[in-house]
């Protein structure tokens, strides 16, 4: 029965923190800055309209809100983006893949190759400007169960995808062999 697995000690895999993690491309900072700029520009246009037309009672609150948005945007571009990119790293091992990210909220995500259902390489218009892509690994865990590695060179993302696809395919016969054994 499938639930009669032998117990395996944790020593069989080396601790993750001592592994050589690969940082994502520094150019991803520009992608994030563009995205922050666009997200800040949308409310600023609306608030600008309120200030421009000098609407009663709303001009002062709009100026305050615009100031907050500009300050937040500058903070995100100047502090959050570089730290976010510096903290986003991935680690590919023979049997599993990991990603760690986060500026304030640190997250380390791990998935075994044998649990990957399918793989995608995504490239948005801003990423295309900088020759970057995002690798997305889908598992069968449903909502939020995918592993996304942004800020990869497009060529590298495709090579990773190809490698992982081969790994998945090579593991499949082993699984069916075991199933029929």
């Amino acid at each position: 029965m499938s639930l009669h697995d032998p117990v395996i000690s944790t020593d069989q895999l080396p601790p993750l923190d001592n592994e050589p993690w690969t940082p994502i491309e520094r150019a991803y900072r520009s992608v994030l800055r563009w995205m922050v700029f666009i997200w800040c520009a949308i409310p600023l246009i609306g608030l600008g309209g309120v200030i421009w037309f000098n609407l009663d009672h709303l001009r002062f609150p709009a100026q305050i809100a615009a100031g907050v948005v500009v300050a937040l945007g500058l903070f995100l571009m100047g502090v959050w983006v570089p730290r976010r990119v510096a903290h986003t790293q991935y680690l590919l091992r023979e049997l599993d893949i990991h990603k760690r990210t986060g500026f304030w909220w640190h997250k380390t995500t791990s998935a075994g190759h044998n649990r990957i259902q399918h793989i995608e390489v995504i490239q948005g218009p801003i990423e295309r400007l900088y020759g970057l892509s995002q690798l997305v690994l889908y598992t069968a865990g449903g909502f939020q169960s995918d592993v996304r590695i942004p800020g990869l060179k497009t060529d590298e993302a495709h090579r990773l995808k190809q490698y992982l696809t081969q790994r998945i395919v090579s593991e499949e016969p082993a699984e069916s062999d075991n199933a029929t054994a």
Binding site: S2, D5, I8, T10, Q12, L13, L16, G112, A179
Partner: peptide
């Protein structure tokens, strides 16, 4: 938590039986 994560991951990658 890190030891538990490493242990769980070992269990996952070593599991070669049908699961779905």
């Amino acid at each position: 938590a890190q030891r538990l994560r490493d242990g769980l991951l070992t269990g996952v990658v070593m599991y070669k039986k049908p699961w779905f």
